[in-house]
Simulated scan of single mutants.
Amino acid sequence: MNQITQTAPTKEEAITVALQKLGVSKQEVTITVLDEGKKGFLGFGAKPAVVQVTVRINEEKVEEVHQPEVETLEVKDETEISPSTSNEVDNLEGTNHLAIEETINYINEIAKEMKIDDLEINQTKEGKFVYLQLNSKKAALLIGKRGQTLNALESLAQLVANKFSNSFIIIKLDVGNYREKRQESLEQLAERMADKAVRTGNKVEFEPMTSFERKIIHNALSVRVDIETYSVGTDPNRYLVIEPIK
């Protein structure tokens, strides 16, 4: 390995870690700062610094490396050297692996800023979706009021994944199955509010919600013919309305 892309909370830390992994000194490499990063506020909105460290190779070493490669190519048959889509797949898988690894590192850094020192992250992949299950005794801090902290963390994690992945992946975060419990709670709330709207003959307005949560309520009530649902306002203050059909 003669090149590495490394992230860390600061540029200096990223360079130090990269040099340790490569086993070289600063005088033997070329350093390119891809992103200076930023601290953010209380860990939110923070961006890790990203550097690319490349080991410098002199001309004699280049000749020594290239010559065996030419000789090897001469003795290979067409099936051995023909282009293969498997190489592209391997590259994509490697890129996705890096993206997931850097995303997990970033979440851990934010957790440290929040004074959470027992965070465990388990990952599962289903096609383009990468599910990261966060576990901690301080789960409430990770979730926040009505999931606001978790939603913000998921958005930041997606940005980090986009930075390192060349193929499309979607990062989904959860803490203690909060997403499933929240969906069940919203579906039950939707039915109660729909019944109230029909009973009183007046429209019912919800508090501002994310587009994902508004969609849950829309879907839960889509089979009812006695009410209609629609959203009003602009994010982040966009809210859902249930109105009875008279």
Rank of each mutant, 00 (worst) to 15 (best):
A140K: 12
Q183V: 14
V175F: 13
E191M: 06
K138W: 00
M193S: 07
E126H: 03
R179F: 07
S165V: 10
L119D: 12
M209S: 02
E154G: 02
N122M: 09
Y106D: 05
V198P: 04
E207G: 02
T200Q: 09
Q148Y: 10
E109P: 00
M193P: 05
E154W: 12
E113R: 07
I104P: 01
A140E: 08
D174K: 11
S155L: 09
Y131A: 06
K163N: 04
K172Y: 11
G176Q: 13
M114G: 07
Y178T: 08
K137R: 08
K203P: 04
R179A: 07
G127V: 03
V204S: 07
S136D: 02
I116W: 06
G201D: 14
Q123G: 03
I169V: 07
L150C: 02
V198D: 07
A197F: 01
D117T: 13
A139P: 00
F168E: 13
T149W: 01
S167E: 14
K125F: 00
L119V: 09
R179H: 05
E154A: 05
L132S: 11
S155H: 07
K163W: 04
I116N: 08
K137I: 03
L189N: 10
A140H: 06
K203T: 02
E180W: 03
R179G: 03
V204R: 05
L156R: 05
R182I: 03
N105C: 06
G127S: 05
N162D: 11
E187V: 04
F206W: 13
L186Q: 09
T200G: 05
I107D: 05
K138T: 01
A157F: 13
T210K: 14
A111L: 13
V130S: 14
K196N: 14
L134N: 09
S136T: 04
V204M: 08
R192F: 01
K196G: 09
L132K: 12
N162P: 00
N202T: 01
M209T: 01
K145A: 08
M114E: 13
I110Y: 03
E180T: 08
D195Q: 14
L132Q: 10
R179Y: 06
M193T: 05
D174L: 15
E126P: 00
K172N: 10
Q158W: 15
L156P: 01
T210S: 15
N151K: 07
S136K: 06
V130T: 14
F168T: 06
N162A: 01
N166E: 12
N162C: 00
K145G: 02
L134D: 02
S155C: 00
Y106M: 14
A194T: 11
K172A: 01
